[in-house]
Amino acid sequence: MIETITRVAPSRMRRQRIEDVLFRSITRAFAVGVLSLLGAVMVALAIGSGPAVRAFGFGFLTSEAWNPVKDLFGALPAVYGTLVTSFVAMVVAVPVALGIAVFLTELCPPMMRRPIGILIELLAAIPSIIYGIWGLFVLAPVLQATVQPFLIATLGEVPGLGVLFAGPPLGLGILTAGFILAVMILPFIAAVTRDVFMTVPAVLRESAYAVGATTSEVIRDIVLPYTRVGVVGAAMLGLGRALGETMAVTFVIGNAHRIQASLLAPGTTISASLANEFTEAVGDLYTSALIELGFILFVITFIVLAAAKLMLMRIEEHAAK
């Protein structure tokens, strides 16, 4: 019966409408806040690096000097170390991560998929500082005693390539840092690659198997071509992580503001320089030079991560179709 329906008082209706608009605006305001956080970081770092920019200009990027006493600073050794350690990390991590993704999607019994996937992802949960302490006390001595002398004796003798493996086995250095970074980014690349592999339509996979392809042929000729963009995106995501990783690298890189061709030599990265020197930096120019290093790091990682995100978005759209 129509008459018995209680009617909502107009004033209450109005109040609810206002509350609705209010709630919506609040959530939107916070969303805008998160957005402006990125801008705020950029602006704050740009302002902080002002004195160094004025003092060194573009020369900062190409100078190898790092002399706090004379107030001479250059970014090149740190940028070089950042790029080289990340490159070493990618060379090790990408093939291994691909292997893990292949294992989890094609080879692993379905029962074991989740547990093994979770264990691999737990590698990503271990904090950076734990990798650092493990790298310093456990891994570096092992590398120094076994792997590095072996590399010096074999690859070190190869003409051309030998430059990369020259010098004494110190244990600490660019190679060790790169290896630790590889282990740290491995779970990120593996997890994303696995998810990307899952987007391959079962029909494609099954028809390849039906005409007699082996598993490795299915991966090479069906899965990889279909997911190429996503796999590159996953690798770039790992690269973005590796570039900015701090504590683990600080422990094992040896902290030397020098550029040496040998991967066994100590070096430094942007983040390691910041972690080591920032609180001890005396003088505005020293602090400012370090902030400019941080700014450079942020810009590089932003570009890499944005590219990774765009690639992964493409594969998502692909999967949605």
């Binding site: 973005g240 900015g244 983040s271 942020f298 990682t301 932003f302 991560l305 995100k309």
Partner: peptide, 11 residues
């Protein structure tokens, strides 16, 4: 947000 998720924490 996705970029902030992976941005270097030292920055």
């Amino acid at each position: 947000n996705d970029i902030l998720l992976s941005a270097p924490s030292i920055v």
